[in-house]
Amino acid sequence: MSLFLRVQRPMRGVITSANEVLISVELAAICGSDIHTLVGQRSTPHPCVLGHEGCGVVVKSSRPDVREGDRVTWGISTSCGSCFPCSLGLTNKCENQIKCGQVLIKRATLFGSYSTHIRCPAGTPIVKLPPALTPQLAAPINCPLATMVNALSKIPPVPRPGQPGASVALVQGAGMLGIYGIALLKEAGFSKVYCIDVNRSRLSRSADFGATPVHPDQAWPNALDPKEEIVSPDSIDVVIEACGNKDVLQQGLKTLRVGGTYILVGLVHKDSKLNISSQTVVTKCLSLVGVHNYTSQHLEEAVKFLSLHHDKYPFSSLMGPVYPLSEFRNAVEGAKSAHFFRVGINPHT
C-alpha cells in the first residue's frame, strides 16, 4: 500500500467554509489502527494525512463556541445530524461522515493529526481542555478513552451496596482501551475488575489502575478442572473485549453469569469471525453489544472524567517517547514494538 503523509504548513488562519476550525497540533499519538493501515491490514483512502489522536490550540475558528487560543481535542469523525443513524443518536455512524486520518486530501484537506495543523470540517466535535490536562494526558482522549466511555454507557447501572446487580467485571486486554476501561469501571462503582492479557508487562500495569491482573495461564490452567480457575464460570457481570483477539470469546461467555453483558470493542478487523455457541448466549440470556467509536457526548464525558481523575491514576505514564514528525518512521517502529502504551509525535520539532 502506498500512503502519502503530508507535512504541510498552511497559511495561518485559512478557513474556507462555515463552522471549520483550524488547530495547531500540540501532540499526536499513534493508534494501533494507524499501524494496521501502514502494514496493510486496514484499507484507507490515499493520499491522506494519517492520524486521529491528538490535541492542540485553535488558530482560527468560524464556530461561535470555539475561540482562537482555546486548547481542544476533536472528534474522530464528523456527523451531519440529519441522516437516519444521526436521528437515532448514532452520530458516530453518520451516513455522511468524514473520518479523521482516513479521508482523501482533496475531500478534507489537513483532516489528520500527523501534521503541524489539522483543519476540522463542519460537524466535527470540538471539546475544550482544562489546563490540568497536559498534552501527554490529552492526546489519547479522543480515541481509546472516549470509546470506552461509550462502552460503559451500554452496561447496566451498578447497584447500591448490598443490592444485587452488576458489580464484577472482566476486561480482556491491557492496552489503552483496557486500561482506560478499568479506571472507568472502578469509578463507576464496580467492586472488582479483573484484567487478562498475555503481555505480562502490560498486565502488571493494570493493577495501577484498579484491576486484579490475571494471566491466561493462571485464569484457566486446566479447563477440565474448574476448581483451579481463578476467574470462575458464571461469576462475572460484565465482560469487555478490548484486545482484538476473537479466541477470547469462548472464555468470556463461560465466565458471564445469567443475564450478563458482553461488550465487544477491539474486534474491528478482518480476522474477527466469531465461533461461539448461540445456545450459551440464549440460555444465559446474555446481552452481546458492539461498540464502535463514540458520539460528541462521550468525548465530552471523557474529558470530564480525565479532568476529575488524572491525579488519582498514573494516566500520564501511558505516553511513551515523543518523536518529531521528521522521525515518523522511527515513531512507528516504536509503536509497533508494543513496549509502550502510546508513542507521541510533536509535529513542531
Rank of each mutant, 00 (worst) to 15 (best):
V214I: 15
G181N: 12
S167C: 06
L267W: 06
S153G: 02
R63Q: 13
R67T: 05
V66R: 00
P47K: 11
C31G: 03
G290V: 06
F315S: 08
T91Q: 11
H215T: 04
K60R: 14
K336Q: 14
H298M: 01
H310L: 00
R63T: 02
I276E: 01
L50S: 09
E95V: 06
A207L: 10
L264A: 12
G51V: 02
V21L: 03
F305K: 09
A166F: 02
A331K: 06
G334K: 02
I276L: 14
A146P: 00
G210W: 08
I345M: 03
V303M: 09
H269P: 00
S167A: 06
Y194K: 12
Q279R: 12
E300I: 05
R12L: 13
D65R: 02
G320F: 08
K106G: 00
C243F: 01
F4E: 08
D65P: 00
H298C: 08
R71Y: 02
V57Q: 06
S62F: 10
R342Y: 13
S272N: 09
P216D: 09
V66M: 02
A338Q: 12
D311I: 05
T295Y: 11
D225Y: 06
T134G: 11
C80S: 07
K312R: 15
E53L: 05
L253W: 06
R9W: 12
T116A: 15
P85N: 10
C285D: 14
N222F: 05
R119F: 06
V289F: 03
A29I: 01
N199Q: 06
K254W: 12
N92K: 03
G51H: 05
L249A: 14
L3F: 11
C120L: 15
R9V: 14
G178E: 07
D197R: 07
V193Q: 03
I179Y: 08
P130S: 15
Q250I: 14
V291A: 01
I196W: 04
G290Q: 07
W220V: 14
L50N: 02
E95M: 13
V25T: 13
I179R: 07
R329L: 14
R202M: 04
I23L: 06
P159S: 11
V238P: 01
T116S: 15
G101N: 11
R12C: 04
V343M: 10
S33N: 04
F328W: 10
